Amino acid sequence: MTRAALLLLPLLLVSACGGPVQIDAGDLSDADAKACAAFVDELPETLDDLDRVDVQPAGAPGAAYGDPAIVITCGVGQPDGYHAGASCESVAGVDWFVPDGEYTDHAIDVTLTSAWSRPRVEVQIPKDYWPEATAAATGVLSPIVEKHMETVGHCQRL
C-alpha cells in the first residue's frame, strides 16, 4: 500500500462511520413549527432498544434512532401514493399510511406517515428492523402524535 493510501485510510474509516442523520427541515408555518417542537421534545431517548442519535441541522423537527437510523420527521408533505381511501394501520387513535407494497415486502424499507394529522409525522424504518420496530414505533409515537397534532380525518377501514 502506498504512503498516500495509508494516509487516506483513517479519513475513509471516519467518513464511513455514520455521522449526524440529515433531517429535511422544510418550511413550516409557525403553528406547525410549534407543534413539531412540542412533539420532538416528548420523543424518548430510546426507541425499540435503539439509542437516539444526533441529527442535522440541530433543532430539526425530528429525531433518529440506531444505525441504520429509524428517522422520524415532523411537518412532512403528503406521502407518495396517498389517496382518498388509502389503506392504513390504526394505532392508539392515530391512522398511519403505509404505501402499497411496503407493508407486505419485508425486504425493503418502510415509511409510515400520520397522513390524517396536521402537521404530519413520517417514520422511515430500515428493512433491518422491519417488522418488529413498526409496532414499537407506532405504539410509542401514536400517543405523542395524538397529543400534539390536529386530527383532520381518518382512513377508510375495509
Rank of each mutant, 00 (worst) to 15 (best):
M1D: 08
R3Y: 10
R3K: 14
A4P: 11
A5P: 02
A5Y: 12
A5L: 13
P10D: 01
L13P: 04
V14D: 08
S15H: 15
A16N: 09
A16F: 12
C17M: 15
G18I: 13
G18Q: 15
G19Y: 15
Q22C: 00
Q22A: 14
I23H: 07
G26T: 10
D27G: 09
D30I: 14
D30E: 15
D30G: 06
D30R: 15
A31M: 08
D32Q: 08
D32M: 09
A33D: 04
A33Q: 12
K34P: 00
A37V: 03
A37Y: 01
A38K: 15
V40N: 08
D41E: 09
L43K: 05
P44T: 12
E45K: 13
E45V: 10
D48S: 13
D48M: 03
D49P: 05
D51N: 13
Q56Y: 05
Q56V: 08
P57H: 07
A58F: 14
A58E: 15
G59V: 05
A60R: 15
G62H: 07
G62K: 06
A63T: 01
Y65I: 04
I70N: 00
I72V: 14
G75K: 08
V76D: 01
Q78S: 00
P79M: 02
D80I: 07
Y82F: 15
Y82D: 13
Y82A: 12
H83M: 03
A84N: 14
G85C: 11
G85T: 12
A86F: 12
A86M: 12
C88P: 04
W96S: 03
W96A: 06
V98W: 13
D100N: 14
G101Q: 08
E102P: 09
Y103E: 11
D105W: 03
H106C: 00
H106E: 04
I108D: 11
I108V: 14
T113Y: 02
T113G: 00
T113A: 03
S114G: 11
S114N: 01
R118N: 12
R120Y: 07
E122G: 00
E122Y: 05
Q124I: 13
I125N: 02
I125M: 03
P126L: 02
P126S: 08
Y129F: 07
W130D: 13
E132L: 04
T134Q: 12
A136E: 11
A137G: 00
G139S: 01
L141R: 11
L141Q: 10
P143G: 03
P143Y: 04
I144T: 14
I144R: 06
V145T: 05
E146T: 10
K147H: 11
H148G: 04
M149N: 11
G153C: 06
C155Q: 01
Q156L: 06
Q156V: 11
R157Q: 06
